[in-house]
Amino acid sequence: MKPFSFSQAPLTADVYRAALADPAAGGYAAFEGWVRNHNEGHAVTRLEYEAFEALANKEGERIVAEAVARFGVLRAACVHRVGSLAIGDLAVWVGVSSRHRAEAFAACRYIIDEVKHRVPIWKKEHYDNGDSGWVNCERCAHPHEH
């Protein structure tokens, strides 16, 4: 599978997981980011993700390559949803297979942290009172936490 990609369709973690299988792997770690029903005290009803895909794909690929080089894992990949998402939907998936568990956890953590900070993806939240806002651009001026 591609190291980094976007999907308009719901993410299929099982399919991605299978693509990371490797006979030398002793384990696999994954992170799934889900859409939750609240943020910063506001009840969230749904989300929209938008990406500058031409640059986001390049930066995402760089992040995954960095993780592989840095932690010496066997395979790693990340898929991010774009479009309109409901509460509970899978927004982002990161998976890593490696010889031992420690580097799988570390690489997985590295990829999701870097993706959140570096890849041009934007999230618009819709609230139960009818308002909406672009996260980090409007209501909350402080940077998103890890």
């Binding site: 991010h80 927004a91 999701i112 959140k116 570096r118 041009p120 993806i121 934007w122 672009w134 651009c137």
Partner: peptide
């Protein structure tokens, strides 16, 4: 040219 607002992936 693209001006990139604060990002919020994940």
């Amino acid at each position: 040219v693209v001006f990139i607002p604060p990002v919020a992936g994940g």
